[in-house]
Simulated assay, not measured.
Amino acid sequence: MGADAMSGWISRFPSLADVADPLLRSSLSAVRVMELPSGATVFRGGDPCRNYLLVLEGSVRVQKVSESGREILLYRVESGQSCILTTACLLAGEDYAAEAVTETPVRAVAIPLGLFHEAMGASRPFREFVFRAYAERITSLILLVEAVAFGRMDVRLARCLLERAGDGAELNTTHQDLATELGTAREVISRLLKEFERTGLVRLQRGRIILDDSAELGRIASGAGGNTP
């Protein structure tokens, strides 16, 4: 990849865009851009880690799957972000311990293992970029562990519904998708959604949830109401 092509994707990462480090610029000019369709597996548990990944466009879901098939969403990697599981595997020389699947069509930069370690060893700006992104994601993972271990599921579900609906009043999703995202069983989510529907907070349709009382859902999401399942 030449300098012109590099300048195109590097603008997605402001902390790298202004770096004048010759080694870093040389290393980055050699990377390749991957294009993956929605639903593609980026890596699986047990796969070796060979590239440092930076997402340019789209969304990648990183999740852990138990032996029984139960899934929990660890985090998403979206435009302008890196995958901290990949970072951890590269630094430790270990294989992946989870899997990643594209949720949308994705364009991503793949920096080969050798170039990653070369830049980490010789370029302070690159090291700072890698560890800053790593630290930010570790914080979010700690919050996830706290929520799964200690959080009330009605609070987490209400918050999830509001976040995924955004400024709208409905979202296209399934009970299983929500259960996977919140790290619980589908039956728990279904029971809570039916209770939300009974009290007039939502309406449930096949593959769709309509929010009828976002204000009350917001109150529950803040921990001010609702019942622990």
Rank of each mutant, 00 (worst) to 15 (best):
L161I: 08
E187G: 06
V148P: 12
L204R: 12
G121K: 04
A122C: 01
A179Q: 04
E195D: 12
S123Y: 04
E128K: 09
A122Y: 03
R156G: 05
V109S: 03
R152V: 09
E146W: 13
E181H: 00
R186N: 09
A149L: 15
F150I: 02
L178W: 03
L115W: 01
L161Y: 07
V188Y: 00
C160Q: 11
F129L: 09
R156L: 13
A122H: 04
G114R: 11
F196I: 15
L204T: 02
H175M: 08
T173A: 00
N172A: 11
H175I: 03
G166V: 07
L113T: 03
L204Q: 11
L171D: 03
R152N: 09
D177G: 05
L204F: 05
K194P: 00
R107N: 06
V130N: 14
L192E: 08
E128L: 13
E197Y: 15
H175G: 05
R206C: 00
G121D: 09
L201Q: 14
L144F: 13
R124W: 07
A119R: 02
E146C: 10
V155L: 07
A158N: 05
V202I: 11
D177L: 09
L141E: 10
F126H: 06
L201Y: 13
A158F: 07
E118C: 11
L193T: 08
M120R: 03
V148M: 13
Y134K: 05
E181N: 02
E195I: 12
V202T: 09
L171S: 00
E187Y: 05
R132K: 15
A179P: 00
L182H: 04
A119F: 01
L192H: 08
D154W: 06
E118F: 14
I138K: 13
Y134E: 11
R152F: 15
G114H: 06
C160T: 03
R208C: 01
E136T: 07
K194M: 10
I209E: 01
P125S: 05
E163T: 00
V188T: 15
A158P: 02
L204I: 10
V109N: 03
A165S: 12
R206D: 01
R152P: 14
F116N: 10
Q176I: 13
A110H: 07
I142R: 15
L182A: 07
L115H: 00
A108M: 12
A119L: 02
P112R: 06
L157Q: 05
E136L: 14
E181F: 00
V106S: 06
R186F: 04
A169G: 04
A165T: 10
F150D: 12
V106G: 04
A122E: 07
A179T: 03
E128A: 09
T139G: 14
V109C: 13
M120C: 06
A108T: 11
G166M: 02
L161M: 08
V148N: 10
G168D: 14
V109A: 11
R208H: 01
R137Q: 15
A185Y: 04
S123F: 04
G200Y: 10
V202K: 09
G114W: 01
R198T: 14
L178E: 02
R198Y: 02
A185E: 11
E163Q: 12
L161N: 12
